[in-house]
Design a protein around this nucleic acid. Sequence first.
DNA 1: ATGGTTGCGTGGCAA
Length: 255
Amino acid sequence: MKIATWNVNSLKVRLPHVLDWMAANSPDVLALQETKLTDDAFPVEAIAEAGYRCVYSGQKTYNGVAVLAKSEPVDPLTDIEGLDDPQRRILAATVDGVRIINLYVVNGSEVGSEKYAYKLAWMDKVTTWIAGELKRHERLVVLGDFNVAPEDQDVHDPEAWHERILCSTPEREALGKLFALGLSDCFRKFEQPEQSFSWWDYRAAAFRRNMGLRIDLILTSPPMTEACTACTIDVAPRRLERPSDHAPVVAEFVL
DNA sequence: ATGGTTGCGTGGCAA
């Protein structure tokens, strides 16, 4: 079973890239973030023609998450208890007996800002909910754009990013609470190239210079960690014309 | 270099 995550930064703009990538890589599940589409505008037909079912939770202009899968995603959930949030950032669904939790974590803008406080509160509430989900689902995958680089090795220039947004200690501690629940960053279960990143700023030729961060993650419950045989970042779509600023991350499982 | 680029939507915000 191949499970992938990709922040597409507008599915309207990126649909051709997504369809090409699905055709070339044949993931069983593809979680998307930043679709930036209302649900009535979701390209259900184009995705169906590619052989995929989908569930989605979107809004105008910002945010928006979707789960595309070869099998029907069931038991979809878009809102969690204790988080009355109009921002569409959460989508859970079960595919082939695996509970998928797709997250577009709040960016936070700047350390100390209102959005930063919202980010930390959001992560805390989502983590509490995931603790319950782990008890309900043995096979659980939490994936998406976490907007946190877990460690300095996930940052091209740790000194420049020291205690800045996406890298600050409170954000890393908030992410650490997910690890403390028993979830594993499956990318780090395998030997990886140094300077592996999943996001590069559009500005300052950051991709060409590999000035990136690894903020797109696939976290696995213990049975899924055991079943995971590979986890890679596919930088190929980042090289295309008019790319997303994020690359897809892919994990493979033998269940 | 407190810049730079992209998307949405058509001004300015978010990332």
